[in-house]
């Protein structure tokens, strides 16, 4: 099991209702379904991924996240997942609002653009970072909203979203003490467990 998925699974209550936004081939939901017996729905737009979800026995709905989630009732799920999809959304901040409307808890993972490799790439070459992990050129990348750990922390503060837990791992999904100490510099993938904060007075 990939360590990041294991981290996410720890935050999911057995038998709970889980909505996965941009669920890919459904492997995370399949894992949660078999290990935690969750009731799952995944949203996906890629046809190949949708077929894989069906093969994986995962409930999947063809739906474009950029058109919003107004078809989902408030508090109709226990947890909403957004794994490695945040950076590809037109309005990530609005989707996060919607996530925490649909469920009390959200789990967000994204590539951390504040990672030292990105910083050095940009500083030394003066060009947008391209790597095995993020292989696209600036003009054809689906990732239109990169952010850093610090950026996401700031968004949560601004929106009064409570961060229950934050972990960073490398591209092999491994973490260590140094990453814990300097997450925005060393972490390649950020994993957030968030919940609705108290409304601002």
């Amino acid at each position: 099991m990939r360590p990041d998925l294991e981290i996410i699974a720890k935050w999911i209550k057995p038998g709970s209702r889980v909505l996965d936004l941009g669920c890919g081939d459904g492997s995370l939901l399949h894992y949660l379904k078999t290990s935690k017996e969750v009731l799952e729905i995944g949203l996906e737009i890629d046809g190949v991924n949708i077929e894989r979800c069906i093969e994986n026995g995962v409930n999947v709905i063809e739906q474009n996240l950029d058109q919003g989630l107004s078809n989902f009732q408030s508090s109709s799920f226990d947890t909403v997942l957004l794994a490695q999809t945040l950076q590809a959304l037109s309005n990530p901040h609005e989707l996060i609002d919607d996530m925490l409307r649909i469920a009390k808890n959200g789990i967000v993972t994204f590539p951390n653009f504040g990672n030292w490799k990105s910083r050095i790439y940009l500083a030394s070459r003066g060009r947008m970072p391209v790597s095995k992990f993020m292989p696209h050129q600036w003009y054809n990348t689906p990732n239109i909203h990169f952010c850093t750990v610090k950026d996401f922390d700031a968004l949560c503060a601004e929106k009064n979203i409570k961060v229950l837990a934050r972990t960073v791992v490398d591209s092999q999904h491994q973490g260590n003490w140094a990453m814990k100490a300097w997450p925005n510099f060393l972490g390649e993938i950020a994993i957030y467990h968030i919940t609705r904060g108290k409304p601002i007075e």
């Binding site: 209702r17 009731l39 729905i41 949708i50 979800c53 069906i54 409930n59 999947v60 709905i61 063809e62 739906q63 078809n71 989902f72 009732q73 109709s76």
Partner: peptide
């Protein structure tokens, strides 16, 4: 079809939907 899907979701049902 999406109307049906949305009502199924509202009812908490397990749905797969393709367009």
């Amino acid at each position: 079809s999406r109307e049906i899907v949305n009502d199924l979701l509202k009812a908490g049902r397990q749905v797969t939907y393709l367009e």
